[in-house]
Design a protein around this nucleic acid. Sequence first.
DNA 1: ATGGCGTTCGCGGAACGA
Length: 258
Amino acid sequence: MKITTWNVNSLTARLQHVQDWLAANPVDVLCLQELKLTDDKFPLDVLRGIGYGHCAVFGQKTYNGVAIMSRTPLRDVVKNITGFEDDHSRVIAATLDTPDGALRLVNGYFVNGQAPGTEKFDYKMNWLRGLQAYLRDEVASHPRLVLLGDFNIAPEDRDSFDPVGLAETIHHTTQERDHFRQLLALGLVDSFRLFEQPEKSFSWWDYRMLGYQKNRGLRIDHILVTEPLRAAVKACTIDRVPRKWKQPSDHAPVTVEI
DNA sequence: ATGGCGTTCGCGGAACGA
C-alpha cells in the first residue's frame, strides 16, 4: 500500500503533472493540497479515467483546498477540524479499508503563518492547537492512522538548508517545532525518519533564486503514522523528479509504503 | 534583502505562498 502527499500549487495548473506522475508511480492513494479550485471544478472524470475514481474533495476558490484520491472506496469523510471554526479548506479525513484493516487518513494543508508576530502566525498557532485537540480524539478512535500533508514546519535543523540563518523565522520557530513534537507525543512517528535518508533531504524549494538548483530547500511535507503502523512501514521517500519538470509545483511528492 | 517566482482574479496589480 503506497500513499502519497503532494502540494500541487493549483490542481488546474498541475493536472497534467499529476497524471504524468501517477502514470509512472501508480500509488494507491494520492493526497493533494492547495487545489485552488472549488469542488465543482475538481477534474473527477480525468482522475477516474486513470484509476482514481474514489475522491474526497474539500475545495476552495483561489486558495487552499485538499483532496484524497483513491483507487478503492473511501468512507466516513470529515472536512476541516472538528471543534475548530475555520473559513479555509485545509483538512480532509477519510477511512480506507485494506486487507490489514481500516486505515484512517488525515490530509492537511497547514497554515503558512507568514512571520512570527503577525496575525497569520497567531492563526497558525490557534489552528495547530485545534488540530492537536482533534487528532487526540482521532488517534484514540483510529489506531491505524496516517497524518500527512504540507505541515509548513521544518521539524529539526537538518530539515532546512540554512538552519542558522533562518533560526526562529517562519517554519523554523520554537513554537512551530513544539507543535510538531506535540503531534508526535499523541503517539505518531515521522515515517521519513524511520529510515536512513540522504543529508539535505527537502520537499520544497523556492521558485526564486535558483532554489532547487542550489538545493536551498525545506522538508515541510510529512507523513506521520501511529505506533501500531510503525513496524509495517517499509519506506518513505521524496521524489524530486517532478520538481525538475517544466512549470512545476514548488513541492515534491512524498510517499510512504505500508 | 523590503528582492526574486508562480498562481489567481481579471485586465493592473494585489494577495498569498514559504
